[in-house]
Amino acid sequence: MEVLRVNIKEGGYSEKEPVIENVHFTVQPGELLGLLGPNGAGKSTTLKTILGTLEYVDGEVEYNREKRYAYVPEQPIFYDELTLWEHIQFTASVCGLTEEEMKRRVEPLLDIFRLDDVRHHLPLTFSKGMQQKLMIILAFLAKPALYIVDEPFVGLDPKATNDFLRLLDEERKRGAGVVMSTHMLDTAERICDRFVLIINGQVIAQGTLNEIRSENGLDDKNLYDCFEILLEKNGL
């Protein structure tokens, strides 16, 4: 059974002006689905629809059994007055972890992302990359059935990017599904199982790279070229 099933007829900030239309896809356990598209295409709106934070949605978003996800936003969000460690404590307690379980899970993550020395600092004073690392740590701490990740590589250094992808891979082996919006097409081609290409709020192609190639007559093209050609075909 899928981890996530998305059937959106329309979605947006008001009924009068829908931003996305006819977005349908599923995420299987252990699968990494890449959500691709140019700026303003509707990727983040799609993710917000999945999160249930969009004002207007005509359609359905179904989770497997319980609604348990972790979200890594493009712009890190945190309480200005809480320290890094307090964010971890809060997330762990909300997810029902014991304190021992929290420590067992989070200590290696703090070590990997080199945030150990700043655990009692306010994330407000962190660089963008450090804030992004905190968001990633909180997601891995939760160990959810589904990861919703919005442009995770922005601000991350190459080591952190590799560590993030390695940990994500381990989670997929555990059976977690991932929806990831990104502009990094070369990375996406390397790590994603399937792709959903959105332009002007509509899905114009989806499937594995081979499926997209054969459906559009783009044999031997890489993801970047497929993306370029499909954009041109759609007048962009």
Partner: peptide, 10 residues
């Protein structure tokens, strides 16, 4: 606070 959307749990 939008931080509460970072994890959805019971």
């Amino acid at each position: 606070h939008p931080f509460l959307s970072v994890v959805a749990w019971p």
